[in-house]
Design a protein around this nucleic acid. Structure first.
Lengths: 114, 114
DNA sequence: AATGCTTATCGTATAACGCCGATAGCCGAT
DNA sequence: ATCGGCTATCGGCGTTATACGATAAGCATT
């Protein structure tokens, strides 16, 4: 299967990739944990989540690749934190996309389909 | 593998499931097409996308299951349209989640990690 | 009833994801 | 130099997602 996902516009591919970063509860939980503590060593996240260390590290990598999280080696540990700018940008992208889909129908009722 | 995703709070699981609906460019393209035309027969979408009919139907089902799209049988065809309310709700959920993550740092620069 | 058009579903193949144990790499402390 | 703690990566396994052809089901028309 040649990757059909590459046949779509970059804008859509990019948005979909960002959405994928959000598409697992473990990653959302990691983001929340980082938000609570401001800064986190990997081990702390492992302690909070019901997942093995290897799995958490993998999710962290996904989040890093998506640009939502940054990590710095801090002696023996690695210190993670949110990239607030990236998060806001992503939220804005989603908002803009959805707004473009629903030009405006402030009337509560959605019109009938056909 | 017992599903580890079930070990997370419902709120996170739900948000992740919604994100998954956005996590493929084909589905985003379908949403855009529906927004442009207001209403769409499945075949029209198939004509627009570089995918087989079966694949498009599957993506439409994913979007329907996520509640973002509604479909009504219209004679021999099935007519699809966006559920604008659901889309706005979803966008709001994302916005709220991200806002909760980034309480406030109106200063453009993200603080250093550690 | 038979045909043609449209869509959903089934079955299947490939790819990607999620998960973990084990291992390797790194750094500080001993 | 060695040891011990922390993290990233590797390899393997099972599950889920993506994609498609083939088929079935529904409806309008003939």
């Amino acid at each position: 299967m040649q990757n059909k996902a590459d046949l779509f516009p970059d804008q859509l591919a990019h948005l979909a990739a960002q959405a994928k970063a959000f598409a697992h509860p473990a990653r959302l939980a990691i983001l929340q944990t980082l938000a609570q503590r401001g800064t986190c060593v990997c081990g702390e996240i492992v302690d909070v989540l019901p997942l093995a260390q290897a799995t958490v590290s993998q999710h962290l990598r996904t989040l890093r690749d998506a640009g939502l999280v940054r990590g710095e080696v801090e002696g023996p540990c690695t210190c993670y934190c949110l990239d607030a700018d990236a998060l806001r940008t992503l939220a804005d992208n989603f908002g803009a996309f959805v707004n473009a889909l629903t030009p405006d129908s402030p009337n509560g009722a959605s019109p009938d389909c056909c």
